[in-house]
């Protein structure tokens, strides 16, 4: 792409990544969550592919594969935490400790240390979605041409 596109992409990339991280991290407090934040970060991957070409990201396929596996395993492991009573039981909520501050009913300013397993699951699903959609974009850009095959 032209130098204008490359410069704007270089300027915009940290902000897109930071916004995606914010959407994932505050998924239990504000609109958003793992899926949406992962899609935002995957759009950053698409931006890099459009501006700089897909060849530079060719070595990152193993990273995407690792992140996808990590997200899936973390998600199922967090679900298995509650196997004493039910699969997917929220064992950390309301018990103090990590993400365990009890929340009273009603509107509040939002505390980050709440939600039990929900923020951790947000991170797991966010990693999974960003790796999945990013690798789909990367594969379509790398091998979607006419000449391969």
């Amino acid at each position: 792409m032209s130098v204008v596109v490359r410069t704007i992409a270089r300027l915009l990339l940290p902000w897109v990544l930071a916004f995606g991280g914010y959407v994932i991290m505050h998924g239990h407090l504000t609109p958003g969550g793992g899926f949406q934040g992962g899609a935002v970060v995957a759009s950053a991957v698409a931006l890099v592919v459009i501006a700089f070409g897909a060849e530079g990201l060719k070595g990152q396929k193993n990273l995407f594969s690792f992140l996808e596996d990590l997200g899936a395993i973390a998600f199922v492991a967090l679900a298995f935490l509650g196997i004493g009573s039910t699969f997917f039981r929220n064992v950390l909520a309301g018990g103090g400790g990590l993400f365990g501050t009890p929340v009273p009913f009603g509107p509040n300013p939002g505390w980050l240390n709440t939600g039990g397993t929900l923020p951790l699951m947000n991170w797991a699903v966010g990693l999974k979605v960003l790796a999945g959609l990013g690798s789909v974009v990367l594969l379509l850009a790398l091998f979607g041409g006419k000449e391969d095959g």
């Binding site: 504000t30 609109p31 899926f35 899609a39 009603g106 509107p107 509040n108 939002g110 979605v129």
Partner: peptide, 30 residues
């Protein structure tokens, strides 16, 4: 929106379940 962070008090909230299922449907559609 069904989010309690700085929600105006006394205002009804829209139903959360269709939104959650639509979130699932969007990702599967993608």
């Amino acid at each position: 929106a069904p989010i309690y962070t700085y929600a105006p008090p006394g205002v009804p909230m829209v139903l959360p379940t269709p939104q959650a299922l639509t979130l699932t449907a969007i990702v599967i559609g993608l």
